[in-house]
Write a protein that binds this DNA or RNA. Structure first.
Lengths: 137, 137
DNA sequence: TCTACTGTAATACTATATGTTACAGATTGG
DNA sequence: CCAATCTGTAACATATAGTATTACAGTAGA
């Protein structure tokens, strides 16, 4: 899976630990180790779905908009990575019964697989992520 | 997920439908729509794990080695794609509590996610794939 | 010994992911 | 009103991963 998912979780966790003030994309990018523009792109998506609020200009930045327990890993997976589980299917030969039907069969199975994954990921809310982050090894 | 998984399933399905004779990598590649060398690479892996047998030289090729019901999608996932679910984690800032722990936390969660996925994929044996392939829409 | 295969390494190419630059628009404070 | 500090995005550049191709050694049958 690509790193948008990780960056989204990272950013949300960061914001959750700064509940009282705006955080800039630069501050988050320093924590996450990527370019601020990338953070802004990911956060733009999270904002569009109401998880965070943003403000432009001096003293602006990003801030958490809802309760920690209201967002879980499945929500974020759907935003950033839906379909990532689906195996790539090269365009195969329609003259062959295998080639003609493989994509359809695998697509259906992995649609179910993603739902199944969802049931697992729903059990991890951001609150639990933060608990795990704080629980040092 | 990359297409090695799909090619492995495709090849196995193809071989399962030709149980009495050797199939060449070229024949399979024509059905799957990829280069024969790629098929040979994937089949080399399947052979190493005992799912198929191969024979070099004239009249050679690949043939199914075990019972259809003995191989399922989880077996093949593990061979071709284990770890694919794991979200990429950029190297983040160890000075920050979020950066220092995010990778460890996500890694553990997605290890569990892959196990969970396994429970789902185990329910699909190659026999069932073939039934689905034959069941036209 | 010629032909038809697999096995595999090396290389080339292509697609996707990521990084960077640039700049318009919003907001604040002097 | 102007300068400074942010977000929001598009456009472009670069890096990485996925895939295709070439090449050739080894094996087996006719």
């Amino acid at each position: 899976m690509n790193s948008d998912f990780t960056l989204a979780i990272h950013s949300l966790t960061y914001l959750a630990l700064q509940p009282d003030r705006m955080s800039t994309s630069e501050a988050i990018s320093e924590s996450a180790g990527v370019h601020p523009v990338r953070i802004r792109k990911v956060l733009s998506l999270l904002k569009k779905h109401g998880f965070i609020k943003s403000k432009e200009g001096t003293g602006g930045g990003f801030i958490f908009a809802i309760d920690l327990s209201e967002v879980n890993l499945w929500d974020i997976y759907k935003l950033t990575s839906e379909g990532a589980l689906q195996p790539k299917c090269p365009e195969s030969n329609e003259q062959c019964v295998v080639g003609a039907n493989m994509q359809r069969v695998l697509f259906a199975i992995f649609l179910g697989a993603e739902d199944h994954l969802g049931e697992y990921l729903k059990d991890y809310s951001l609150k639990e992520i933060i608990d795990l982050i704080n629980k040092e090894e």
